[in-house]
Design a protein around this nucleic acid. Sequence first.
DNA 1: TTCAATACTCAAAGCGCTTTGAGAATACAT
DNA 2: ATGTATTCTCAAAGCGCTTTGAGTATTGAA
Lengths: 353, 353
Amino acid sequence: MGGCGLTNLKDIARHLGLSPATVSRALNGFPEVGAKTRARVLEASRKLNYAPNITARRLATGKAGTVGMVFRSARNLLLDPHFVDFLAGLSLVLSDRQLDLMIHVAPPGQQLAHYKRFMASGSVDGMILSAPEIDDKRIQTLLEADFPFAVHGRSHDDAPYAFYDIDNDSAFSAAFGLLHDLGHRRIAFLNGPEDLAFARQRLSAFNRECKARQIHVPDRFISHDEMREDIGYEQAASMLHGDLNLRPTAFICSSTLLALGVMRATIEAGLEPGGDISIIAHDDVLPHFRSEHFAIPLTVTRAPIRDAGTRLAQMISDLVAGADPKAMQYTQKTDLIVRASTGAVPRRGDKPW
Amino acid sequence: MGGCGLTNLKDIARHLGLSPATVSRALNGFPEVGAKTRARVLEASRKLNYAPNITARRLATGKAGTVGMVFRSARNLLLDPHFVDFLAGLSLVLSDRQLDLMIHVAPPGQQLAHYKRFMASGSVDGMILSAPEIDDKRIQTLLEADFPFAVHGRSHDDAPYAFYDIDNDSAFSAAFGLLHDLGHRRIAFLNGPEDLAFARQRLSAFNRECKARQIHVPDRFISHDEMREDIGYEQAASMLHGDLNLRPTAFICSSTLLALGVMRATIEAGLEPGGDISIIAHDDVLPHFRSEHFAIPLTVTRAPIRDAGTRLAQMISDLVAGADPKAMQYTQKTDLIVRASTGAVPRRGDKPW
DNA sequence: TTCAATACTCAAAGCGCTTTGAGAATACAT
DNA sequence: ATGTATTCTCAAAGCGCTTTGAGTATTGAA
C-alpha cells in the first residue's frame, strides 16, 4: 500500500462489497447514494480509521487545497516579527475553510523564482503575497498567468487585484499633523526599506505634509532600512548628535520597533521622550509586546496586523473558488492613539536648545 | 490540461517524439538515457517552460516532499514570537533540501487532531513538533504510528526520538547560581506554561538549586503563564507589592519578554533593575529585539532559537530519508552572559528595605 | 557473419482518488 | 402485466507522473 495511510478507499469498498465510486460518493455527500448505504460507509470509514489520500484527491480534482506564501527575509534571513500575528489570523481562517498553508522563506532576490515554482508545480492553487515592492515583478507574473492571489499591501493605487492594505496615507498625515499641531517643525522620519510599496506610500504622505506646511526636512532626517530596534537606535543617535538647533524634535517611525530604538537613543542622549523629543510610530499591534507598555507609552497610529491575516485568508479562499479579484480590495483606516511619547515642542531656554 | 501547469511531461514527449518514460528518466538524471537525448529533453523542457506536476509526482512516488508543523497558539490564538526566527532557520535548510513546509496553527486542545490529519492524509512525510508537553499525546501517537518526526525540546529525559533541546537544567542552575553568589536569597521565578516540558525542566532545576542551597521560596514567588511582557509586569508588580522584607530581590524569567515586564514593574515600583532588583532571563535571541539593547542590558542565559530551526530541519530531512531517530538527539549548552540587570543584593539601609 | 554484451527507448501498469455514462433494482402508475 | 420514472450502484476512464520489464539498436568480440 504505497507509503501512506493505512486504509484506502478501495479497502473500504471491498470490505463493504461496494464499488469505490459509491464509497467516494457516500463520503463526499453526493445525493445519489442511499441513506443506509451512506450510513454503512460512514460507519466503516470511521471504524477503519480511513482518511482520504490528499495527494490522490488533488491529482483527481486538479485542486491543491493549498495556498502558498513566500515570506520576504532580509539578506541575513531575518523574518519580520509582525508576521507572527499575521500568520495567526491567516491560518485560523484558512483551516476553517479547509485550506492548507504552504510557506517558503526567501530573500528579496529569490522571491520571483519561488513564486514561479509554486505556480508551475501546481502545489498551490492560490498565493498570498506580502511586502509588495513599487513595481513588483511577482505581481506582474501572477497577473499575467491569471493565477489567483491576494496582496497584503498594494504596489500602487488602483491596483487591479485583490488586496488588503492599511491607509498609510492618512495614517502618516495624521501623525505628521499631530506633531505639527504640537509645534514641531524639525521632524525626522524613520521608514522601512525603500523598495517596499508601503514605505513609498508613507514617504509621499510625509513629503506632501511637509510641502503643504512649508517645512523643509533635510535628507539626513529621513532614513530607509529594516525596521529593527537597533536600526532605530543608530539612526536616532546619529540624528540627535549634531548641533542643538539642527536636531529633530520629533520622530515619526514606520514601526514600534524603530520607535523603541529611538527611545533608547533619546534617553542615552540625556533627553526625555515625550518631553524633549516626541515619538510617534505606526503600530501593527504585536500582542506579545505592546506599545502602551513601553517605559514611556508610545503614541501610535494603529491597525492590527492580524486583521490583515484574517481578511486575506477570506479573500484568497474566495478567489480560488472563482471570485472576482477586483471586487476584493480593502483599505483599512488606522486609529490615532495619543500617549505620553508625544508632547508640545520644548521652548528654547527650558532645555539646552 | 487539467487545472495546472501549461506543459506536461507527455507534451514534451510528443513534441520530441519520445516516450514519457524516456523524458522522465532524462529529467530525473537516470543513467540509462543517452547524452544527446538528455540534452534535447532538457532543452525542450526549458523552452516549453515545463515544471513537473508536484501532485502527480507525489502520488507516483508515494513521497510528499513536504514536512508539516503545527504551531501551538494560546487560547486567544497568540503565536509565540520566538517562532519567527525558528522558522527562518527551518525554512532555509528545508528549501535547500527540496522539502516544502506546510504549517497549521492550532490551540492546545486541537493539536492532536491536526497531527492525525497530517499523518493519515499523506500530505506530509515527516513532522516537526514544538512545545512538547510533559506526557505528550502527540508524541505517543507519532511514535506508535512510526511516523518520522523531530521535536523541538523533549518531553522527558532519554526520549526515544529525534530532538533538539537546549540544556535547560544547566542554564537555570547557572542563573540561580549567579544570583545566589551575588547574595540573593529571595528569588522569584517567572516560568512558561506549566504543561510544557521545558517549563517543567526549568522548574526542577530551580527547585533543586533551592534545596541544595537550603533556600525556601514561597509559592507566590513562582508563576507559570504565557511568556508575555504584560504577564511579566503583572506578576512582578504583585510580587513587589508586599512587605519590604518579603519581596523578592531577584527574578529569574523563562523569557526576555517576561523580563521586560519585570523591568517595567520594577521601575514603576521606584526600584532600580540591576541595583535593587536583579533580573536574569533565558534568551532565545530575537534578532529584531535584543536583550543587550534593553534600557538596562539584560543578563541572560542564551541559546539562539534559529539554531534549533536549522538543526531540526536537517534532522527531519534525514529522518524522512530513513535515518535512525535515536541517533539524532542533540542538547545544546547555553551561554551565561552577565550584563547590567544583575548585581549584588542591596544591603539593608542603603535602600528602603 | 554471428553471438553476446551494451546502450538506449518504449509500452504499460500503477499511485488512490473522482467522475462520467450506463446499468440494475426498486417503485409507481397504468 | 407492462412501461416509465426514480433510486441506487458500478465499471472504467482518467489526473500526470514514475517505474518495471521488455524490446530494439548499436557496438565489440569471436
